[in-house]
Design a protein around this nucleic acid. Sequence first.
DNA 1: TTATATATATACAGGTCTGTATATAGATTT
DNA 2: AAATCTATATACAGACCTGTATATATATAA
Lengths: 187, 187
Amino acid sequence: MSLLKSKILVVASDLFQTRGINSTGVDTIVAVAGTTKMTLYKYFRTKEDLILEVLKQGHQDFQSWLNDKLNSNSKKPSEKLQKLFDFIEEWVTSPNFRGMGFIKASAEFPNEENPVHQLSSEQSRQFRQYISSLASEANIQDADGLALQLSLLFEGAVQAEQMKRGSGAMKYAKKAAKILIDGALAP
Amino acid sequence: MSLLKSKILVVASDLFQTRGINSTGVDTIVAVAGTTKMTLYKYFRTKEDLILEVLKQGHQDFQSWLNDKLNSNSKKPSEKLQKLFDFIEEWVTSPNFRGMGFIKASAEFPNEENPVHQLSSEQSRQFRQYISSLASEANIQDADGLALQLSLLFEGAVQAEQMKRGSGAMKYAKKAAKILIDGALAP
DNA sequence: TTATATATATACAGGTCTGTATATAGATTT
DNA sequence: AAATCTATATACAGACCTGTATATATATAA
């Protein structure tokens, strides 16, 4: 991918997270990225396309990071599940944390027919599916049910952290997750 | 309160929830409410003032409704806590449900210095405090900790329902809440 | 009937937004 | 040296936005 294109993606992602998507104009994005609108519209057909690509990139980055962390630290499936929220906490409390793209995007585009909303919803489903596969490998009966509960804790804690940086919500989400996981592992 | 003013509040609340706050112009609001901009700006100094009042109204309506439900159905504090998520589920699955105001608003105004963001954050805190007082009355040790965990489940489930209507997330949130509450009641 | 309060109708100023058109600069390739 | 590709600079059309100014209608009160 072109250097300029990825620069635009990084800048747009940051501005969308810190100022909101609808409140960020393309003029601001190109100014911060040090380029011009002509270039932006060469790589992205419309602003909506840019939003969609920013979301895809962010989600892929997060998923890859998390998956690598889990695989390089644990081999046993049940251990992966147990450590899931440790890494999520690491992610949320890192200074670079700016929030979860698909959570904010779905709020700014509430209409379920909107492509941005649909992608957000799909990414949330994918993440839940990922947790479910971890639970399945750990031989948990109702893997989907546990995955849904854990994803609620996850999204709730991210939401709390987006509202108030340093809320410490993830610490309690982690405790709750442990209780739910332990309960599901030994029923 | 003037009939027109409350009509504007109701219409604005609905439009903000279904189309987003920044995507809803005052022209649309007055058109749907069947009035004019002059009247809107008589009752609300700026659009931001309108947003703040919509949020306040929505939060007060929700809190009153929930509190009345709890008080008229249970006397014992621990029972109130147990039934909390039953009523929340009733609220979320009602056909009128359009999402939680402060969750969407905080996403559209991510800057922590923004008045709308601050009010959202404060309302989230107040709701958590309300759950904490329920937990305290039920003689739970770490009332604040449990309240935070329950509020994470709540906000996560609302978020899930905002992303996909009819997700059924609250059903699982309820189960998880029961486990956490039971664990905290009998430690 | 006259005065007052409330709401409407309409237009507009000044700003921002997305997306495009046009002309030019630099760098690489033929 | 000429041609080609990539990016810049700048201006602008057309739409939408908030908030205000002005004039008018309607209803209640003195």
